[in-house]
Design a protein around this nucleic acid. Sequence first.
DNA 1: TTGCTTGCAAATGATTTGCACTGCT
DNA 2: AGCAGTGCAAATCATTTGCAAGCAA
Lengths: 151, 151
Amino acid sequence: MSAHTQHRGELHRAVAARLSEHDQQYTANRRAVVDALVAAGGPITLPELLATDATLAQSSAYRSLATLIESGIVRRLVHVGDHALFELDEHLTEHHHHLICETCGTVVDVTLPDRVERTMDDAFDAVASAAGFAPSHHAVDIYGTCTHCQT
Amino acid sequence: MSAHTQHRGELHRAVAARLSEHDQQYTANRRAVVDALVAAGGPITLPELLATDATLAQSSAYRSLATLIESGIVRRLVHVGDHALFELDEHLTEHHHHLICETCGTVVDVTLPDRVERTMDDAFDAVASAAGFAPSHHAVDIYGTCTHCQT
DNA sequence: TTGCTTGCAAATGATTTGCACTGCT
DNA sequence: AGCAGTGCAAATCATTTGCAAGCAA
């Protein structure tokens, strides 16, 4: 079980280690991207990421994200709007799912009880095997309307 | 529980009714798009859709899909590759989830036991309410490797 | 030096849209 | 006639990439 990285320093060490495993360096740019994601505390778009660090070039941010994704440090989420969402991989945070507001597009992290996760995993393993798939992980999106968007 | 539309004619009638509710007509183009989706039996990309009917113009297919999506007849799935995936809405088929091959991008429909769906719904309602969300529906993606892509 | 990283500007490519035309109603 | 739907070609816009310069081993 991968550590839920609690401290900033610990997280950066974990990121550096993972990059190194993939023969990648932990450059200032990549660290800036990771910092922005940590600060955000949830999925953010590229424009949002750039807004937190005006020195970052757009193309470099995309390139850093690509590297971080390949090394399993960042996860890219399905579009809710026109921009992709980026968040730290679960190895660095914890297993969670997403609550998505169908009106404003806000995405919030949620965790489910272990009991439910176990029930789901068992069921997913069963249906995946039945279809000849070797399952690796799952993602749950719960759609609805957030407080702010309810009339 | 909305009817699982079994017969082609019944489905077309349901589509026509839904379009009509939204003050839209069931034109030849839109019917062609629906036919292609029915024939596919699962999520397909726009190029795949066009391949099944050479007379369909790309822009018209996109426009028909947009109309069908607005009327709740078609669902657009999150990108697995560069193309979006389109499938018939669950009102016209049945509640299901997706098995996604991380190697080749193939997407297969799967259904879960009612017991599991109930467990999930209860849990989702609970976490959504806790976050102030009014949940409407959910989507589960199970990632893994398909038979064909396993070494 | 040698190779990875970066910024800028230009390219790419899925999706959207302007416009003129066709076909319902 | 009047308006929705369609095809073509052109526009959009997030994301990617070529290239020249900066930096680390």
